[in-house]
């Protein structure tokens, strides 16, 4: 039998993930891991896991890892990158971790132009704690803390991470991608890989927001969840490159 044209990257450990069936965290883990391996950065990579559904990311990425306090991954990443400048540092954060409690840290890391990659996994809900409203929960979307649907009069409006991060001079690259179909998965991989390439070239902060699903807390099947992502999330969170200093 010949070499496979697709096999699991060595940058992922053999540990089975704890993610629910159909949760697209697993796809995003793979894209990040493959990008690191393909660019030959495995030995220099240091990842930072968040608090939230991907809290156990340190079990899955086959590189040195730190587990940071809720929202503080970009601060920890700053410390790591300053201490080991030759390392390739990435944070992997959910929308609650990054856009709610950690909004301050990520924006200041970007403003400082920290030479790190920040990956925001946006599934519009708090997964780990059981489906509460996130800063990204859509208007009208039900959650356990917005049981009648998010009401802007009460809860305000969902926050767009990639657009916000793109405003900082220190942000080198900002993009929003999705993992809902093969084409978009390939585009997401390209964006994630580009983020690592920029870091490897010593450029400022690269930010990739990845639209993801939460079948369990959305109360939808995995396939219905992809449809929700396509029909409800994408109109509010348009895909695209918000900023690319390397292309200017």
């Amino acid at each position: 039998m010949s070499e496979p044209v697709f096999k699991k990257t060595s940058m992922l450990t053999d540990a089975p993930t704890h993610y629910c069936p159909g949760c697209t965290h697993g796809i995003i883990h793979r894209l990040v891991a493959e990008s690191i391996e393909e660019l030959g950065l495995s030995d220099r990579a240091i990842g930072i896991a968040p608090v939230g559904c991907s809290v156990f990311a340190y079990r899955y990425f086959n590189c040195d890892m730190q587990e940071a306090a809720h929202g503080r991954a970009p601060a920890a990443a700053t410390g790591i990158k300053r201490a080991v400048p030759n390392s390739i540092v990435f944070t992997y954060q959910g929308d609650g971790d990054l856009l709610s409690i950690g909004n301050c840290e990520v924006n200041h890391a970007a403003a400082r132009g920290e030479k790190i990659c920040v990956f925001l996994i946006n599934n519009a809900i708090y997964g780990m704690t059981g489906g509460q409203m996130a800063p990204t929960t859509l208007i009208g979307m039900k959650s356990t803390t917005s049981p009648k649907g998010r009401d802007p009069e009460v809860n305000g409006y969902p926050m767009r991470g990639a657009e916000m991060l793109a405003t900082h001079e220190g942000t080198y690259y900002a993009a929003r991608v999705a993992v809902n179909n093969t084409k978009n998965i390939l585009a997401a991989k390209k964006a994630i890989k580009k983020a690592f390439e920029y870091q490897n070239a010593g450029k400022g902060l690269s930010f990739v927001e990845i639209l993801s699903t939460c079948p369990t807390n959305w109360g939808l099947s995995p396939i219905e969840s992809l449809e929700f992502l396509e029909n409800k999330m994408m109109p509010y969170y348009p895909l695209g490159v918000l900023k690319d200093k390397g292309a200017e």
């Binding site: 496979p4 697709f6 096999k7 699991k8 990257t9 992922l12 089975p16 993930t17 993610y19 159909g22 949760c23 697209t24 965290h25 697993g26 796809i27 793979r30 993992v179 179909n181 093969t182 998965i185 390939l186």
Partner: peptide, 9 residues
């Protein structure tokens, strides 16, 4: 590419 559990070769 779409398998979240990287179960397919």
């Amino acid at each position: 590419l779409t398998c979240p559990d990287v179960a397919i070769t």
